[in-house]
Amino acid sequence: MSDLRVPKLWREIPQHYRLEASKCLSCGRIYFPPKTICNNCKSKNLEKTALPRKGVIETFTIIRNAPSKYELYAPYAIAIVKLENDVKILAQITDCEPAKLQIGMPVEAVIRRLYDDGENGVIHYGFKFRPVF
C-alpha cells in the first residue's frame, strides 16, 4: 500500500501541480525540483518561483517497456523540455504519438494522471507536456 508514498506525494504537490521551483536570491539560479540550499553559492536565501508553462523539446526518448503503473500509457515519450526561461526539466509527453515528436517542437504543460497507486490507492496527478496547438 501507499503509506510511504502519500506523504511524499503530498509534499511534492506544489512542484507537480504548479511547477513551483526555487530561485536563489543571491546568485539567481533556479532549481527544479526546488532546493533549500543553492548548489552554486551555498546561499540559504531561496524563494519559491513558478516556472513558465511553455517550452520546446530539447531531446527525448521513447519508453516501450514501461514500468508497472505506466503500462497503460506505453509507448510514451520522456523529454527534456527547455522552458521559456531556459530552465530544463524532465517530463512525460502526452497527447502525441511518439513517432510524431521532434526536437525543437513547442510544448506546453498540462496536469494529468501520472499513475494510480492501485485500484484502492491514491491518484497521483502532475504535469506532463503536450504539443502546442
Binding site: R112, R113, L114, I123
Partner: peptide, 13 residues
Amino acid sequence: AGPDEDTTTIAIE
C-alpha cells in the same frame, strides 16, 4: 478522455 485524463484533469484545464 485520454488514458491519463479524468474529471479532475479536465476541470483543471
